[in-house]
């Protein structure tokens, strides 16, 4: 599904990611862990082609097509979805109307169904986009959009930070029961070492100072719990 080949990325003339290689197949779950500031969010931004996140070298390949030069909206149309670590607020845009922009055919009934699933108070959707929503509520709104957009490759940047245990359960249930059944691929960026209780990853990558320093199976998480990231420099 998604391949990243020898990718170097700079922001404002500073190299942030170095020689990143990834290969995520259909229906695979990859976990990305690493210290703060190691480049996890940067990688998610560069995949979704955020402006000013410049590819110096290397390729991002989706279904055998190089997508380096596409714009974020085109990337989304190809089925990649990024759930943001810090979802933004947009004053002046009504939530419900916004959701219509994502998919004009989405019915109120369907939105209501998704809200029930996520335990979102639908009345709050008459507010401005994410305005006055709590951190956790904003994350739920990301998943609401995920449900509406139904992408093929899902990148979740710290979806589980700041969420209560019930909400984490709900979200991973949705991922397991819905998106994996639909053969989606998922990249989960997390600091949560209990992640394997909720989802069963095919691979775990550790990124440190802009480099992937380890790729292997989920056993590595136990080692990180014991020894930290020191062995993966």
């Amino acid at each position: 599904m998604l391949k990243i080949r020898k990718l170097y990325v700079n922001i404002k003339n500073k190299i942030i990611l170095k020689n990143i290689n990834l290969n995520i197949k259909k229906r695979e779950i990859h976990i990305l862990m690493g210290p703060n500031g190691s480049g996890k969010s940067t990688l998610s931004y560069v995949i979704t082609r955020k402006p000013n996140y410049n590819i110096v070298k290397g390729d991002i390949i989706l279904n055998n097509k190089i997508i380096n030069k596409l714009s974020p909206d085109k990337i989304s149309k190809l089925g990649i979805f990024l759930s943001f670590q810090n979802p933004i607020e947009i004053e002046g845009i009504n939530m419900l109307k916004y959701l219509k922009y994502l998919n004009n055919n989405i019915t109120y009934k369907k939105i209501k169904e998704y809200c029930n699933l996520l335990n979102i108070d639908i009345n709050k959707l008459s507010r401005f986009f994410n305005s006055g929503f709590s951190g956790g509520e904003k994350k739920k709104n990301e998943i609401l959009q995920l449900l509406i957009l139904k992408p093929k490759l899902i990148i979740l940047d710290e979806i589980d930070s700041g969420l209560d245990i019930d909400t984490i359960n709900i979200i991973f249930r949705i991922l397991n029961n819905y998106f994996l059944k639909k053969k989606c691929s998922i990249i989960i960026i997390t600091h949560n070492t209990n992640i394997v209780k909720y989802i069963n990853p095919n691979k775990v990558h550790i990124i440190n100072k802009g480099k992937i320093t380890f790729t292997g199976n989920k056993e590595v998480i136990n080692k990180i719990v014991k020894y930290g990231y020191n062995n993966y420099k």
């Binding site: 979704t48 955020k50 402006p51 714009s71 974020p72 909206d73 990337i75 989304s76 149309k77 979805f81 990024l82 943001f84 979802p87 933004i88 947009i90 845009i93 916004y98 922009y101 994502l102 959009q145 957009l149």
Partner: peptide
């Protein structure tokens, strides 16, 4: 960028903005 990343076209994103 946020709006674009949700598949909303450039024109629509700017309009919305």
């Amino acid at each position: 960028y946020y709006l674009l990343s949700r598949g909303i076209s450039k024109l629509k994103s700017k309009t919305l903005y």
